[in-house]
Amino acid sequence: MIELSPILVTLKLATITTLILLLIGTPLAWWLSNTSSKSKVVIESIVALPLVLPPTVLGFYLLLALSPDGFIGHLWFYISDTPLSFSFSGLVIGSVIYSMPFVVQPLQASFDMVGKPLQQAANTLGANSFDTFKNIVLPLSKRGFLVAITLGFAHTIGEFGVVLMIGGNIPEVTQVLSIIIYDHVEVLEYTQAHYYSIGLLVFSFIVLLVTYSFNRKLMVRL
């Protein structure tokens, strides 16, 4: 039997994570694209870490940080009176860190592409920095945002290692698709594993297909 709850938990996690990443990632990418500060490379490396680190390593340290004795977990408990480990909120924090490069890097690249010259032209025409960002940079970075949203969303759906380490496997709370597939395979329920897997495969393919074709249209217009 297929259960609906892992699908809903997964979609909810990916949506919330993507939204948070857009909120954090946009100013971060903007800063990275504009700064000449020496700390730029350090921040860039930190953002890119999840690309190379085994998810278990990231998950392990997140587990420590999110636990009631850990820094984030302790703070969270102090504010909200609930533990962070093995909770949906903890999962969101982990996913945000894990999918960060997939959002920040495309945004940074597209901000770089818009470049200083057009912004300077807008400035001399009376547009301040925010005005310029809103009316010149944002519209010209549409493709970057599209790629960032797609990759951030799809990558969060596909995560496994970090979730396994910090999410536990609590049905209807932290049990996501990738985990339930693993569970079914472990107990040799290949049919159920197939349902989820083929669903995920088709879904991911369609998302990428739509993005790439839409992306091409955007490319022609710009």
């Binding site: 010259p117 032209a121 807008a122 400035n123 001399t124 025409l125 301040n128």
Partner: peptide, 16 residues
């Protein structure tokens, strides 16, 4: 720059 009221025509036009 946006308070200076000095307009600039660039070599590379810089149209949006």
């Amino acid at each position: 720059p946006w308070f200076r009221n000095i307009a600039y025509v660039f070599q590379d036009h810089r149209l949006f």
